[in-house]
Write a protein that binds this DNA or RNA. Structure first.
Lengths: 135, 135
DNA sequence: GCGCCAATTTACGTTTACGTCAAAACCCTG
DNA sequence: CAGGGTTTTGACGTAAACGTAAATTGGCGC
């Protein structure tokens, strides 16, 4: 009884993450995933599975596949010189910048939603109170 | 010297928020903004300006214009009965749910980026140290 | 060997969110 | 009132991210 299998079919991943095989193949087309092959069949490794998870998380954050590509590349980049390291660090800095902006946007929005909801709840309570007396 | 003007041209807003007039008109097409008119010319009120800000924030968060529409509608909804209130509160709950997911995604990603960067920084330092001795 | 089902390739279709002209109207200025 | 800048309304184009349909291929179960 193993929890992490060592290979998956496209249907396995499609079902697990609730996306279509077409979408997964599309990500491969764009170079985001490169599964092994058994003849024609695609064989996905646990590593491929993680990449798919990263892709989908990127999508939830509203990034384009190209942006997701860049972020994922950060993870398994093997810098081959000082210049490469600098570029990598710079990429990290940029990504963080964008993410921080999003973080702020979300917190602000969450605050506003909360305000709307509590105001709404308050008015609802009032309406009900009056409703009781009137009706 | 007033800071908040009481009307703006489309070019004013386009410049302020760094979007094209075309985009702003497009949002109007989709019902996200409804500026006044002076003949043909569109006249944007401070309220319209705020709506545009909300739209752009929604875009930064990766929402579609349709989703943004729904969120914005929360702000100036004038519920006209108990059922309306309930629906509004439900909408708030959904939005919060989605935003919390995003918040989590962002925090995780930020953590990972930080890890990548610090690891990178460390390797860079080592490379430099060795480089000094060797070269 | 044959039917069946899953997976693949190819290719065209679709939706979203604008970009990019083009042509006409408006407005101010000299 | 001619010229120049701004704005408007079409209308067509486009990039991204798949959807969808059709034709093929590849095991498997009997």
């Amino acid at each position: 009884m193993r929890k992490t299998r060592d290979s998956y079919s496209i249907a396995d991943l499609a079902k697990e993450f609730d996306v279509t095989p077409r979408a997964i193949r599309f990500y491969e087309d764009k170079g985001l995933i490169t599964p092994e092959r058994d003849g024609l069949r695609r064989i996905y490794s646990p590593r491929d599975r993680v990449r798919l998870m990263l892709i989908l998380r990127g999508k939830r954050l509203g990034f384009s596949l190209k942006e997701i590509q860049e972020i994922i590349d950060l993870y398994d980049a093997e810098p081959t010189g000082e210049a490469q390291y600098m570029k990598l660090i710079e990429s990290c800095r940029k990504s963080r910048e964008s993410l921080r902006q999003q973080l702020e946007d979300i917190q602000v929005t969450l605050g506003e939603i909360d305000a709307v909801e509590s105001q709404c709840q308050k008015l609802l309570d009032e309406t009900r109170a009056h409703g009781q007396k009137v009706g």
